[in-house]
Amino acid sequence: MSVSAVLAILVGVLVAGGVILLLERSLTRVLLGAVLLGNGINVMILAMGGVAKNAPIIGQSAKGDQNDPLPQVMILTSIVITFAMTAFLLALAYRSWQLQGHDEVQDDVEDRLVATRREAEELEDTGADADLEAAEDARAAVEETPSPDDDAALTRDA
């Protein structure tokens, strides 16, 4: 099976761009990354159909000289799915913006707990007698509201 070099390079560029955007913090960029990645994979499926030949319509082209129609059918299905996903992610990003004023993907709850716990422990370790009260406060903070800055939304919900 031979593959067009242009398509192969295009797949590489699209997927690379998609991965970079997926690693971003803002949900809108993540969404764009998903779109790029999806398109890259669609082009890859197209490339899997082999080099371009004639339209696979009986009567218009010779039997041995037709494109494989199956990859195109699959791409069509996956375009529809990607489209629906894009719409949903947009709604999600908008709702996130409505609630929090930004659309950034937030940290895992467990990550934040571990981080605040470590801060509290560090306070405890370094602290002399005068700092003991601060350590107590920090420990209480872990139990009640771990990080008030980026946690406002969470507590507001609860």
């Binding site: 999600l92 937030q106 969470l154």
Partner: peptide
Amino acid sequence: ASRIRSGTTYVI
């Protein structure tokens, strides 16, 4: 808000 937060991780 909490469901949007956890849902975002899940969806991505």
